[in-house]
């Protein structure tokens, strides 16, 4: 009973998060402006991170947690650098 419930919930979460990542990727590709693309990238990495967490729950290993942590940190740095680039025109001043 609980195994069926959990595998349904985990499967639903994986599909929903993958769909969400696709929608965010669509916004990244579509634009129309540069800030929309960065916003799409921001959502995309958050969804990928959550998808890794759920996959880690499915497989029962903690490696996915570490991968999710790395995605979170790198995604934050990347989107902040891009946003600053949009704000000022250069990343480093």
């Amino acid at each position: 009973m609980s195994a069926a419930l959990l595998s349904f919930a985990l499967g639903y979460a994986q599909i929903a998060l993958a769909l969400a990542a696709c929608l965010a990727g669509w916004r990244t590709l579509r634009g129309p402006r540069a800030q929309d693309r960065v916003l799409g990238l921001e959502t995309l990495y958050v969804q990928a991170m959550l998808l890794f967490l759920v996959t880690g729950m499915v497989t029962g290993t903690h490696y996915f947690f570490e991968a999710a942590l790395v995605i979170g940190v790198m995604g934050f740095v990347a989107t902040v650098a891009l946003a600053r680039f949009l704000l000022r025109g250069e990343v480093l001043e």
Binding site: A9, A24, W26
Partner: peptide, 28 residues
């Protein structure tokens, strides 16, 4: 896994993934 663990885990998973999907849907 007993049901009293499985039910909240499933509920939190459904809530979290649905809200994330709604966020991306709104973005689109």
């Amino acid at each position: 896994i007993p049901l009293w663990i499985a039910v909240p885990v499933a509920l939190f998973l459904l809530l979290g993934s649905t809200l994330s999907m709604l966020g991306a849907f709104g973005l689109m």
